[in-house]
């Protein structure tokens, strides 16, 4: 009984940790963008204010059942994938032994798509033409970045004969080198795919406010937007932690985790600040050129 209670408490603590870290990263991103554009920028905790305000807004939009389900799907996907990612070395955080099993890497690759698909269903119900365009763009871009991402993951899985994240971390602990050094091409492929995964500029074709009025979320206001912002920050934490676990040997304490994830987070942020938005076909060709090339090399690296 007690163990179940502790597990639930630990799960909630993990969600809170992911939410807080993701929110602060979002705030830091806004601050960094502002500083690069020679502005003062909002405070780092600005995203918290936004989310609390959004949750306290009235929400009286009704387009059908699926529209209400869309944001729920998004946050379900984020939280579920969070449950399968080991936060620290050898398990979870705060009494929480996470739900990792021997095939969780494959599961995660699938689960990370689920949120986008749920959002696509929800946005499709609203009937807003901008949503439809945004969904189309999002799914095309997903086809773009999923292929290199899966290639790099498959390369690692075949080389080390394990499909679990904890297994990957153990291998790194035993060999003493991080996988970003032992398998550099897989790392490069995954990082290039991560640029698209974050939907930041130049790959923000999905939410492009000037073109498609924030795309899939254009009919979602108030609490739904708040849900999506929370889901986005949890998901950012999930992605970063997954990459840190697989390629950078995980983290033994929270400070190490924050340092490693923040360093990794700077790649899409800084790449985004300095690049204008791509068009859809440019984004897809981008992913299908160099990331795919590096993905093939990483597969060959794993085979020989």
């Amino acid at each position: 009984m007690n163990t179940i209670l502790f597990e639930i408490l630990g799960a909630i603590a993990t969600i809170l940790l992911a939410f807080t870290v993701g929110m602060f990263y979002g705030g830091a991103r806004r601050k960094i963008i502002a500083r690069i554009q020679n502005r003062v920028g909002p405070p780092v905790y600005q995203n918290f204010i936004d989310v609390i305000k959004l949750y306290s807004k009235e929400t009286s939009i009704h387009h059908g059942a699926m529209q209400h389900m869309g944001p729920v799907f998004a946050i379900t996907a984020s939280v579920t994938s969070l449950m399968f990612v080991p936060v620290l070395n050898g398990g979870g955080w705060f009494w929480f032994d996470n739900l990792s099993f021997s095939g969780d890497l494959i599961f995660l690759v699938y689960m990370m798509v689920f949120g986008s698909l749920g959002m696509a269903l929800g946005a499709g119900q609203t009937g807003n033409p901008n949503s439809a365009i945004g969904v189309t763009r999002g799914l095309s871009q997903m086809v773009g970045y999923e292929i290199p991402f899966v290639m790099s993951m498959v390369a690692l899985m075949t080389q080390f004969h394990t499909t679990s994240i904890t297994g990957m971390m153990e291998i790194q602990a035993q060999s003493g080198t991080w996988m970003m050094f032992s398998n550099p091409f897989a790392f490069i492929t995954a990082v290039l795919a991560m640029l698209g995964m974050f939907h930041y500029s130049p790959f923000d074709i999905v939410h492009a406010p000037a073109e498609v009025a924030s795309g899939p979320v254009s009919e979602f206001g108030g609490k739904y937007l708040g849900l999506m912002m929370s889901s986005g920050s949890i998901f950012a934490f999930v992605k970063l932690t997954l990459f840190v676990n697989v390629f950078m040997g995980g983290a033994s304490n929270l400070i190490e985790l924050v340092v490693k994830t923040f360093a990794l987070y700077m790649i899409p942020v800084l790449y985004g600040v300095t690049s204008p938005r791509y068009r859809t076909e440019q984004a897809i060709t981008y992913f299908w050129k160099w990331p795919l090339f590096f993905g093939v090399i990483s597969l060959l690296w794993a085979a020989f």
């Binding site: 502005r39 936004d50 305000k53 807004k57 979602f220």
Partner: peptide, 21 residues
């Protein structure tokens, strides 16, 4: 933009009326 920077007051653009205050 950078000279007056309303974002430091928390003012930012929303693309659709559903999200706007």
């Amino acid at each position: 933009t950078s000279r007056y920077d309303a974002e430091r007051l928390g003012v930012r653009g929303a693309a659709t009326p559903r999200q706007a205050d």
